[in-house]
Design a protein around this nucleic acid. Structure first.
Lengths: 201, 201
DNA sequence: GTCTATACGCAGATAGAC
DNA sequence: GTCTATCTGCGTATAGAC
């Protein structure tokens, strides 16, 4: 899955890992080198300096975070089928790369000017999913709201619990609630909530 | 509102500001001193070192972020009245201290071991709000779910949009949607969604 | 391409005068 | 309590041998 065939890739993947955990300011070039099992000066040989290494890591992370869901939104099924699929997609993503979302959110906030240029304007709004919603809204079948609100409810509802996981787990633990069960319940509640709302015309 | 009567307070408030914006790793003692309009060595005089200054800032921030809503949850009105009030509370909080939430989430994730001790176990679950929900759930009037799910839906739905504000604004801007209008719509959608869901037995 | 050694600046921290 | 001057170590970056 992860390509470590070249030295450059080894460095890049290590950088991905360390930057995701520590952020730009907190990451150390030495730690990235150690993680890659490679001499520190190699980082400069391949990526010039910390700033440029970070830039490449960020761009890749941003595309991955924002873009990986788009195909699901453009698929050939109904909007109603897409909702649980997208929810499941985010749950999987948060479990496989737990630090990705918060990293992107955080660094984008601090360096918005430098990196916001990578936003594909209206990427979400041009999906088949958004069109499907707008269609049925106009027919009066669905409640009329901006599709972005639906979209935001789903991402909020699924990403936020994971970025606040330490806090949430502390609360759940003291209640004797199992994390995996809680997340399972969460996925179905969120889907029901959104779908019920849309249909409540 | 902000007490800058003593030198110590001036430093503390400046530290609050800088740490919230830059985080522990990104903040500079010199920047805090400049922000306070005070000599750098004063920071060490009053707070010993960066770590201890940060610790005090974090604890205060955490309490503020987590605790300020509790009185609203324990108030003498119905659960249904509380929902829009709590939503409004978070909107106000995110507008007056835009960096607070992300700061707490972020630093808590990186130093969970050091700071999670401040979590009041089950703080949310012991509120009147949670009891009200459980009561009506048992009577079969409301859908049976863990009250924390309701709570999480509200916080997610209201906090997440603000911490992703730069991204969201970029998207909205390209659609010609006004931010304030979007947030206003958001508040009512979220309240409706949660209330509708609870009542859909 | 990869390594060792080293330069250099920055940021946290202290000493000590006033 | 507040200031100036200074120390020290760390982290980025480069030089240069192999």
């Amino acid at each position: 899955m992860v390509d470590n065939s070249t030295t450059q890739n080894q460095i890049f993947n290590a950088a991905l890992k360390v930057f995701h955990k520590k952020g730009l300011a907190g990451a150390r070039m030495q730690e990235i080198a150690d993680e890659a099992g490679i001499n520190k000066s190699m980082l400069h040989y391949y990526f010039r300096n910390k700033e440029q290494l970070f830039a490449q890591v960020f761009i890749q992370s941003f595309k991955n975070f924002m873009g990986s869901v788009v195909p699901l939104l453009n698929a050939q099924n109904t909007w109603e089928e897409k909702i649980p699929i997208v929810i499941e997609h985010y749950a999987k993503q948060m479990q496989s790369t737990p630090d990705l979302a918060l990293f992107v959110i955080n660094e984008l906030r601090q360096h918005a000017d430098d990196f916001l240029i990578f936003m594909k304007e209206g990427a979400m709004n041009n999906t088949v999913f958004a069109s499907q919603l707008r269609d049925e809204m106009q027919k009066g079948i669905l409640k009329k709201v901006h599709p972005l609100q639906i979209w935001l409810t789903i991402t909020s509802g699924m990403i936020f619990p994971f970025i606040t996981e330490p806090m949430l787990k502390a609360t759940l633990g003291s209640q004797g609630v199992n994390w995996d069960d809680f997340i399972t319940e969460r996925k179905s509640i969120l889907a029901d909530m959104v779908i019920n709302y849309l249909k409540s015309v």
